[in-house]
Amino acid sequence: MVHGAEAIRNAGAHRPGEEGSRRDFLILATTAVGAIGVASLAWPFIDEMNPSADVLALSTTEVDLSPVAVGQAITVKWRGKPVFIRHRTPDEIKAARSVNVADLRDPQPDEARVQRPEWLIVVGVCTHLGCIPLGQKPSDPHGDYGGWFCPCHGSHYDTSARIRKGPAPRNLVVPDYVFLSDTMVRIGEAAAKGAAA
């Protein structure tokens, strides 16, 4: 590749044996400018489908926990998905912590899944194919392990919302959340390191 200035100097004079340097230069330069132009114009048309500013503005949800009695569970909406918040009883906590972690399909100790033992907060979307497991209401089926049961394909979750039986590959996901006070939690924002109770 000959430098631009030289290519231009060669413009008029056609030297035998030297493959058209000016033409090559022009074609390469034009193609490069065109390719960069097309790529930079394509990006807005791709990025436009990403979450917009108003969607991102709603990416955290604050929940008042004070009305949730021990043994009760509530479902809140966060980023369009249900989040299960369960005020666990001492028995449920004990059941969750007396399991041999190594035997689990997705081994995770209960301590790693909660910031405060009495509050279990998980995304209520089955990790199999996205249905919402039953088990929030006392009248719901809770599965073989006292937690949740997904009616779509029969996944059983325990009182730490870990997968115990059925087709789901992973435990229910624990979202980022931070306790703003004893009774107020913000879902969608990561707790500062070491701030977990």
């Binding site: 048309f45 436009e48 969607v55």
Partner: peptide, 30 residues
């Protein structure tokens, strides 16, 4: 692309266009 963000309803059309201008990524450009 605009049709992906526009709402054809008298109560929302104007606002959905303003949303395209302010909130949708590169909506103003498109």
């Amino acid at each position: 692309v605009l049709a992906m963000h526009y709402t054809p309803h008298v109560d929302y059309a104007f606002q959905s266009v303003e949303r395209i201008m302010r909130d949708v990524n590169y909506g103003w450009l498109i």
